[in-house]
């Protein structure tokens, strides 16, 4: 393709190609300092291309494609090309990755152990991970937790965190630099937060999980212990490749829920959430 960039994020080598220059320039900017692929074969390919030939110039619209494919991925305006690249990378990992069990979780590490946070969009898992990283935890990722199939360790996938709507202000208030910010996307306003240098330089350092939280933002504070069976079922739904991994995925997930305590928590605001996480982490 006319424009492209190939980079490594944790265990994944990506190649992103685009008909337009702008999405690749934005991607290079956001991921400056990440290892680039030289004379290496990328694991996954993302393509950004016009859905119809004239859509390259006329109301340019970015379709998202690649090695693996979903029928109903809607195209985005060119101004949101960076989001298209990010969504493309997520999609390829979600549909194509088999070397780890993938869970929709954010992950941060402290003292060599990992805190996993799972939840739907809006639960606060990205925001909490970002705020914890600003408070000194090591950021492993805000989108996918890569669970090793052999020993259950969590491998970092430190993509830029994608913060939605109020989360942008919350992270800025805590001293985080957020940018670029895209307004009017299908997911509302999205701001990208670039992980600290240690998160990038240590992107191959895995660590075992210690605690799993299911946060719910905007609720009265509560803490409920979850049974391993319930955790198991919820994580099968939070995994993009549990089914395709077959028995290997079952074994990895079973080990996780049997060895890592899981709690469902509610928290009214970020400050309360951070305090609660610190308290539960110390007690775990």
């Amino acid at each position: 393709m006319r424009h492209s960039h190939a980079l490594r994020i944790g265990p994944v080598g990506f190649r992103v190609g685009s008909t337009w220059r702008a999405p690749i320039t934005a991607l290079r900017g956001l991921y400056a300092g990440y290892p680039t692929l030289k004379a290496e074969v990328p694991d996954l390919t993302v393509r950004l291309y016009p859905e119809r030939p004239w859509r390259r110039w006329l109301r340019p619209s970015v379709a998202i494609g690649g090695d693996f494919w979903l029928p109903d991925a809607a195209p985005l305006p060119l101004a949101q090309g960076l989001l298209a690249a990010e969504m493309g990378m997520n999609l390829q990992v979600a549909l194509g990755w088999r070397r780890h069990l993938l869970l929709h979780c954010s992950a941060v590490e402290r003292d060599g152990r990992v805190l996993l946070m799972s939840g739907a969009s809006g639960s606060g898992k990205s925001t909490l991970a970002t705020l914890l990283a600003l408070a000194g935890w090591r950021f492993l990722g805000d989108e996918f937790a890569f669970v090793a199939l052999d020993d259950g360790a969590i491998h970092p996938f430190p993509r830029a965190a994608s913060l939605k709507n109020e989360a942008v202000a919350a992270v800025r208030a805590a001293g985080g630099m957020v940018g670029p910010v895209l307004a009017g996307t299908p997911k509302g306003t999205i701001g990208y937060w670039r992980p600290p240098e240690t998160a990038i330089s240590r992107m191959t350092d895995a660590a075992p999980p210690k605690l799993l939280l299911f946060p719910r933002f905007g609720e009265p504070e509560r803490v409920e212990t979850m049974a391993p069976s319930e955790t198991f079922v919820r994580l099968t739904q939070a995994s993009t490749n549990y089914v395709t991994l077959g028995q290997t995925g079952f074994s990895a997930l079973t080990r996780l829920v049997q060895t890592v305590p899981a709690l469902a928590i509610g928290y009214p605001d970020s400050a309360a959430g951070l305090a609660l996480v610190e308290r539960l982490w110390s007690a775990a």
């Binding site: 190649r15 004379a39 074969v41 693996f68």
Partner: peptide
């Protein structure tokens, strides 16, 4: 080389 491998694997997928 790496570029040919990339093209081959992508086409195969």
């Amino acid at each position: 080389g790496a570029d040919d491998w990339t093209a081959l694997l992508t086409a195969a997928r």
